[in-house]
Design a protein around this nucleic acid. Sequence first.
DNA 1: TTGTAGGCGTTATCAT
DNA 2: ATGATAACGCCTACAA
Lengths: 338, 338
Amino acid sequence: MASADGGPATIETIARRAGVSIASVSRVLNGLGGRPDTVRKVQAAATELGYVPNAMARSLRGGRSGQIAFAMEDIGNPVYVAMVRRIQAVAREAGFRLLLHSTGADREEELRALRSLADRHTEGLIISPIRITQDHLDELRRAVAPVVVIGSLPEGIALDNVRVDSRVGAAMAVAHLAGIGRRRIGFLNGPLDTVPGQARHQGYLDGLGTADLPVDEELVEFGEFRTDSGADAALRLLERVPDLDGLFCANDLIAVGALRALREAGRRVPDDVAVVGMDDTELARVTWPTLTSVGLGSARRGELAAELLVDRLGEGRDREPRWVSVTPELVARESTRS
Amino acid sequence: MASADGGPATIETIARRAGVSIASVSRVLNGLGGRPDTVRKVQAAATELGYVPNAMARSLRGGRSGQIAFAMEDIGNPVYVAMVRRIQAVAREAGFRLLLHSTGADREEELRALRSLADRHTEGLIISPIRITQDHLDELRRAVAPVVVIGSLPEGIALDNVRVDSRVGAAMAVAHLAGIGRRRIGFLNGPLDTVPGQARHQGYLDGLGTADLPVDEELVEFGEFRTDSGADAALRLLERVPDLDGLFCANDLIAVGALRALREAGRRVPDDVAVVGMDDTELARVTWPTLTSVGLGSARRGELAAELLVDRLGEGRDREPRWVSVTPELVARESTRS
DNA sequence: TTGTAGGCGTTATCAT
DNA sequence: ATGATAACGCCTACAA
């Protein structure tokens, strides 16, 4: 029952009702003892009034909001869904609520998310930016609360950081395609001015080198990390390189678009063109043919990031920044089955 | 620059620095006028100190946290992703931060989400439960802050509510299958003790009736609203009803599982078995064949729910509860192409 | 064991 | 126009 006297019950309401001071109420409610008699009266009053402590007052007083935030590009990308899921679980476990920032990869939005730490509504932030500008670095440096970055950071940034070497992952993809005898291996990349775009491009070149395949700029197309963009890019590539027999896509969304484009263009997968995606999202199991993809441990990265943050907000307040990493793993499916 | 004197800058710090009272600082910072001279001094001090108002203090004082929450079953389901996306957008637009509760369809978790409104860390809640127990109703009734329910509510509950008639949607699916000449139309449903499970079951029966097809209990299988469960159910159904030629799945996840099972069982889609899903999620465009699905406007429902909540937290504080609904829409794709 | 009182950082009221 | 002061609800010395 809410109190009849207007607003919700407060320790003051309870104190009056129980005939004790607010201090006693607070103590009892926080299990700090008291005379049995007092305890009983307070608990009775609290129950009758349906008392629930005001989280805002607690936060203000305690200097801790009990909230952390996760900023990502777009929850529409299954990679982030996987991350959010695990982050949510770890956060809840540790008693934190989770806030979501969808930035749309907009630089301003990302910076806003970082800056918003300053108002202390959130105790810490996990951020996964695909571009890292000087502004980002400045803002990261002057962040007033712990930040964990998912994604590769330049040397010398003293921040908790969860990374995965997607350059190696990309090379694995190319090696896999070369391994099943493909010679004309195309690459559908995202924007080259993004961290993943850059790394995967390097990895693609590495992979070609290792497989002793010539580098041919004709084989590379750029677009956004999205399905529609992937389909368009695939069509452009097919037009230009009719004898394509392998295709590495910089993420699963692009790969899904590519599969569609290939089908529309009458190419069989994997017989004519074998395809490899990246991120090993849930999508990879749903397409037809199912998609071979290089997993980058997104769920695991989310989990690790959350654990780092939670630790730093508790025990590990003053520890050195930690850089942890996850190993890419190729999961072979029908799209490269010989 | 943060102030050197320990903690972050407060209006107090600024006041000292500018040589005015905290009241003046507050006024200037909130644009409530002041002598040009004073304004200048305060603004200068605030900038130099890198002042950012403490959100917790503001919330406590103002009685508003600027936060709303969304509670859903599992962010892994694309239906909720679509909702979250729009909710996030509307919330941000209105100046609210968004908190996420993943309940795993656990009754206790859902109730906890509802009860957590009591601590005022959140101003309102959007909840999308698939089961509505008496406990839910009790808790909804005594909720201390505005709640918007996405999903059908029993009569007589005075709450903002966004619904879609998935019974009609299910009937549309069956009608569509019958319309392309299918006679043995199976149904893979979720649990019958859920609101959607119940409604879709009714709709399935409605559809058969309208198409003058006999009701045959053999044609119905139950499972969870998940892909793996859908695959299992499909196999059971195929075993029992070899002459199946149409299949309605209670959501896209089930349908994705069914498509896989059908392929493994050597049935061609749509030639042997035509398939219709429900929710028209992003998955429907990604499968092969692409999936005909009955859209239930999940993005739109999320948007409407957020708008209702935001309105009630502002202008519409005292208006009557509103029930808005969205119309199902069948999107035909390859899985039912004749 | 208990109560009084101060303070967390704001905003808003009320004199001046 | 400005400053002192009282809340908002909670926790916690400190004093009794």
